[in-house]
Design a binder for these strands. Structure first.
Lengths: 100, 100
DNA sequence: ATATCATTTTGGCATATTGCCAAATGACAA
DNA sequence: TTGTCATTTGGCAATATGCCAAAATGATAT
């Protein structure tokens, strides 16, 4: 059993914490196919202020879950790594089992 | 773009939320090799009250991340599914990249 | 240069959540 | 019954949260 160093695990936990919010999880799901989406598309669909969406995107970016790309007037977001989609698969697996 | 149904994503987010705490993440890491651990072993190593550990374990169980097994006087915990270890791999991948 | 569009950042607030300990309870074995 | 190991409950102080509104930034177009 390895010793428990709180500080180390705190920073790591931020990664999962970022995924632990309904709006942010929804955003990540929209990108799970690997395609990019413009910020404005998220704003159109979610019923929250555009500044709120921007904050959520910023949290996901800091957690290295998404990366952004500014082109022209707009900003486009993509998964930082294909393995993120794998996280969702694991989640969805457990949900299926929950039914039976 | 799929419509944003908050309630649905809220319950799903609980899964990641459970991983978003230093102590809980540490616990899951101790089990990542697939072996079981007794509650008392976590208590010995972490510097928090045993009731606190128990609460964290309960959260992880509810999120279907761990399963428990009572044998004799003790309770043993294991990963609910090998794919949980994969989540940690994804996390650790991004940490490596962070260094360079 | 000025205006416009898309996004981010800041400030502030009310609320909700959190993590923890201590004490009580449960379950089981000896 | 007594002692262990673990879970549950109650309560609390501290913190974090999510959100909106307004201001600031940045890039493009006129």
């Amino acid at each position: 059993m390895k010793p428990f160093k709180r500080a180390e695990h705190s920073s790591h936990a931020a990664f999962f914490k970022a995924l632990g919010h309904p709006t942010r999880l929804w955003i990540v799901r929209q990108l799970a196919d690997g395609k990019e989406q413009c910020v404005c598309e998220f704003v159109d669909e979610a019923k929250v202020d555009f500044s709120t969406i921007s904050q959520h995107l910023s949290i996901l970016k800091q957690a290295r879950i998404l990366v952004d790309d500014k082109r022209g007037k707009s900003v486009y977001y993509t998964l930082a790594c294909p393995c993120i989609a794998g996280l969702l698969d694991c989640l969805d697996n457990r949900l299926e089992k929950e039914i039976k």
